[in-house]
Design a binder for these strands. Sequence first.
DNA 1: GTGCAAATATGGTCATACCAAACTTGCCTC
DNA 2: GAGGCAAGTTTGGTATGACCATATTTGCAC
Lengths: 239, 239
Amino acid sequence: MRGKETVPSEGRASDAIVEQIQQRILSGELAHNSPLSSERDLMEQFSASRTVIREAVATLASRGFLEARPRYRPIVRKPGFDTALNSVGSVVELMLEQPGGVSALFQSRVFVERGLVRDAATSAGRDDIAALKDALAANKAAIPDSESFFSTDIDFHGVLYNIPRNPIFPTLHAAYASWLSPHWGRMARSQERNETNYASHEAIYSAILERDPDAAEAALASHLNTAWSFVRDSFGLEG
Amino acid sequence: MRGKETVPSEGRASDAIVEQIQQRILSGELAHNSPLSSERDLMEQFSASRTVIREAVATLASRGFLEARPRYRPIVRKPGFDTALNSVGSVVELMLEQPGGVSALFQSRVFVERGLVRDAATSAGRDDIAALKDALAANKAAIPDSESFFSTDIDFHGVLYNIPRNPIFPTLHAAYASWLSPHWGRMARSQERNETNYASHEAIYSAILERDPDAAEAALASHLNTAWSFVRDSFGLEG
DNA sequence: GTGCAAATATGGTCATACCAAACTTGCCTC
DNA sequence: GAGGCAAGTTTGGTATGACCATATTTGCAC
């Protein structure tokens, strides 16, 4: 007998398998970073055809539970907040190519960071302040080297995202960094600009130290909007 | 001859097909909401096996370019910002099941809306105010009916997300609504609580009218935090 | 023209086969 | 015994062909 009786009721046969494997990953039964069993093994385990197994694996991979490089064994990945961002990445990049896309994303970042510095000014703890101070110092030291200035710049802003003690924010920061960097990276750099940017960071820091939310927000908005207009003009973007 | 010579060089055969179809969708050659050609047609068009075609379709579906219900023809979807959020959905839901997940997400919402009402207070236009007023009136009228109060409540907050004129925000609002509703939905409702919530909305509206960002922010924070503590206590959540 | 039943097209699954690249084994050299 | 290399084996990627159940279309009857 060929084409065996197909289960008539349910939707997809692979769904059940996806569910089971997903549970095993979440429960730790399948360890993080360990390779998945071979497709032919899984066929036996679930008594399903290879077609279905492959479909299940593909689904899990698209959800971030497996990392499946073209010709290698899939690797088990226990997903975290970063996985979520990774899975949107491709779609977001398309959005960014549409008119106004980069601008919209950047403006949302400005919005978020305005809130972050306000909160920092009103409620940053001793350790937060210390972290900001360190990041600022590193940024200052990097002024001569545009490459590392770029990275310490990102780090300085990153400190702000840590202050809420909410894991969503650092993830968000990583997302902004990875999505916006491609555009920033193409921007001309100069020590002069580095100095300007450093001065802005210092102004933000000072306002936070002085517990002045309005000043902090204003300094940050001015800083980012200046940077934005520079990037925008660097290669004809809208907004 | 069976298993014809497989292209040795490239990684996945389906990738090229995915790319082409994706382009046709983005260019509009394949219209939004139109059904995709049948798999057997696509086999001819791309001279590929059904295996590869199906894999390509599955990939496109997972990226949100196609909506593939179990037994129907895939439907072409030109992705927008909402597609992106939709594709994170499954991962986010897992995050929410982890300790502190719901709390973290909700606190991020409070953060965003605090910023939104501040901006509304400083820069809402005539039409924004009108929209808020309408939403508020609808909310008031719905006080006796908890079901529609819930929905007009969401709408009222939604108006705030429209004010920045940035397509990311309405999308974000939809995301919050869909991710948090499952938890809200289980909360006990009463006309009394509806009245309390309505009063909060009115307070927010008034503060915006009076162009008082601090009052607006305070009113919103108080409103959401009260609601949160109510939900939290309703079924033992942390945070 | 409308309604419904038969015919057909289509997506979902199974089984089998073959290739090329990845991985394992084991022998051979230094 | 450590290291390297070649043969052998496993595994993922793809192609075919077949069959089921359901969606969709066709076509006849009223």
